[in-house]
């Protein structure tokens, strides 16, 4: 066997780690400046299933082809998955999300919930006489 005396840590590694951490931390800081969201979009199987307002406190079920997938709760401007039929419960563990652009993902059930800003997107088209 050759080359076994390989270094673990050197000056190159130090600078590399510094740069990586700096980039990642600034990325996180920038993404956290985002304001509170007003709506949440629920995608099931890649399609928009429902858009809910976060102002209201509500509890509702998500179904796909009549099969119950999960229970979602909105409260005080936040949204969470309260209960889910999936195995790993990652979506439930995510907990509450409230800021613009955050998301809850459940791959087994193919559900994504993400938050959206206050501005209503303008329409794509207008129908008129």
């Amino acid at each position: 066997m050759r080359n076994l005396s390989s270094k673990i840590f050197s000056r190159t590694d130090f600078w590399f780690l510094t740069i990586v951490c700096a980039v990642l931390l600034s990325w996180i800081v920038i993404s956290n400046i985002s304001p509170h969201a007003s709506k949440a979009v629920i995608l099931v199987h890649g399609k928009i299933y429902k858009v809910v307002s976060l102002d209201k406190n509500a509890l509702f079920n998500i179904k796909w082809k009549d099969i119950h997938l999960m229970t979602v709760q909105t409260k005080n401007g936040s949204i969470r998955v309260k209960e889910s039929t999936c195995k790993n419960k990652i979506c439930v563990r995510t907990g509450w999300i409230s800021k613009d652009g955050q998301s809850i993902v459940c791959v087994p059930n193919r559900v994504i919930i993400y938050t959206k800003g206050a501005k209503q997107a303008p329409y794509d088209l207008m129908t008129y006489q």
Binding site: L17, V20, C21, L24, L25, W27, I28, S31, L43, G46, G101, Q102, S103, V105, V107, R110, I112, Y114
Partner: peptide
Amino acid sequence: QIVSSWVIIGYLPYMEILAT
């Protein structure tokens, strides 16, 4: 691709910190 949405990229910086 699996969940056909780009929103989960928002988690990438956190994942990369842990990966480091």
